[in-house]
Design a protein around this nucleic acid. Structure first.
Lengths: 203, 203
DNA sequence: TGTCAACTGGACTCGCAGTACAGTCAGGCT
DNA sequence: AGCCTGACTGTACTGCGAGTCCAGTTGACA
C-alpha cells in the first residue's frame, strides 16, 4: 500500500514533467514507464488508461494550486489585515514565487488541458471547470471584502474580476511559454496588481 | 494552380476547425482528408507532414489576426483621433466581435500551439513567438502615443502592458474554453479597458 | 499530341495505446 | 508452515494513425 502510493506518485511526477514540457499526447506511456522504472503492465495496473492518468494529474495539480493560494494569502493576511493590502501583498508574493522559479513556471495544466479537450472524457473537463470556478469564488470573495471597505472607482463585475486573476496567470504563462522569456507571468500579475490599486485605493 | 490553392485552403479550413475543437494531435489526417474529400496521397502532396500543416495553419491564423487588428483600430481611429479613445474604442469593438460569435470564439491557435510545443519544429515555435512579439510592438506603440498625451497615474512597463492585451485575450479564451461559458474573453477585454481608463484618463 | 500539375489508390513500415494473461514476489494472517 | 493478496513483470497480441513509396489517372494548356 505504501509501495503503491510510492510508485503511483512517481509515475505522476514523471508524467507531469513530461506533459508540461511537451503536451499530453506527445508524452508516451513508454517513456513514463522508462522514467519510473516499471513495466508497461505496472503502469496499467495503476491507471486504467491515459485518460485516468490525465485525471489524476489534474486532481493533484489543482489540489496543490489551491494549497498554494491558501498559504499565500494566509501569509499576506498575517502581514496586513486590510483586505485590499492583503490582496496586494498576496499578488506580490505570487509574482515573486513565479519569478523565483529558475526554469520559469512549469506552465499551467489547466490551459494545456483546455486546448486538448476531446482527448479527455467529461470527468476531466468538469474537473478543470470546477477548479476555475473555485478560483472565481475565492477571488470574488476577496474582492467583495475589498469593495466593502473601498468603493471601486469604476463599476466592475466582481465575478469577472475574480476570473481575471486566473486569466492573467494563464495568459501570462501562455506568453512565457511561447516567447521563451522568463518573467512574463510575474510581470502580468504585477500589472494586474496596479490595476487593483487604481481601482480600489483611495486618493 | 487555382485548384491547388483551392484544395489546399479547403484542407486548412477543415484542419483549423478540427484543431480548434479538439487539439492538433487529436486531429487525424484521416478525418481531414475525409472532410476535404481527397485521398491521403492528396494530403501529402500539399503538406510534407503534419508539421507543415501546423505551420501553414499558424501562418494563416496570424495573418488573419493581424488584418483584424489593423481593421479594428483603423475603424476606431476614424471614430476618434485621440490615441486613448482610439484604443478604448478598438478594445470595445474587439470585445463586441468576440461576443457576437455565436458559438464563442474558436480559441486561439497560439495558446494551443504553445502547450503542444515539442510536437512542432523550431520554425513553428518561432512563428508563434514572432506573432506575439509583433502584437507587443503594435500595442506598445499605441500605448506610447497615449502616454505622450496622458501621463499614466502609476508607472508601468509599456512592453508588459502591450503583452497584457495578448495575455488578456489568450487568458480569456482559455477560461471560456474550460468553463464552456460564452463571454469570458469579451468580459476580460472590457475589464482591461477599464484598467486603461483608470491608468490614463485624467480627472 | 505531349507535358505537367494535381491528384487517386493501395501496399507497406513503424510507433504507440490498450488488452490479456500467466507468472513472480514480499508481507501479513491464521 | 501454508495461504492469500496486492503490486507488480514480461510477453504477445490487436488496432490505429503517421509517414513512405510508387504506379497510374485526369484535365488544362502549349
Amino acid at each position: 500500500m505504501d509501495q503503491k502510493t510510492d510508485t503511483r506518485s512517481r509515475i505522476l511526477d514523471i508524467a507531469e514533467a513530461a506533459v508540461l514540457e511537451k503536451g499530453f499526447e506527445a508524452t508516451s506511456i513508454e517513456e513514463i514507464v522508462a522514467g519510473a522504472k516499471i513495466s508497461r503492465g505496472g503502469f496499467f495496473y495503476h491507471f486504467k488508461d491515459k485518460n485516468a492518468l490525465a485525471r489524476a494529474l489534474l486532481e493533484r495539480y489543482i489540489e496543490l494550486e489551491n494549497a498554494l493560494y491558501d498559504d499565500l494569502f494566509a501569509r499576506a493576511r498575517e502581514l496586513n489585515d486590510d483586505p485590499l493590502h492583503c490582496m496586494l501583498i498576496g499578488l506580490k508574493l505570487l509574482a515573486e514565487m513565479l519569478e523565483e522559479m529558475p526554469t520559469g513556471h512549469p506552465g499551467c495544466v489547466i490551459a494545456s488541458t483546455a486546448y486538448q479537450d476531446r482527448l479527455f472524457d467529461e470527468g476531466v473537463r468538469d474537473l478543470n471547470r470546477q477548479a476555475i470556478l473555485g478560483w472565481r469564488k475565492r477571488f470574488r470573495g476577496m474582492f467583495e471584502d475589498i469593495a466593502a471597505v473601498y468603493a471601486p472607482r469604476e463599476p466592475v463585475n466582481l465575478d469577472a474580476l475574480g476570473d481575471m486573476v486566473s486569466g492573467v496567470v494563464e495568459g501570462g504563462l501562455v506568453l512565457q511559454r511561447a516567447l521563451r522569456e522568463q518573467n512574463n507571468a510575474a510581470e502580468q500579475i504585477m500589472l494586474f496588481r496596479t490595476y487593483l490599486k487604481l481601482l480600489f485605493a483611495p486618493k
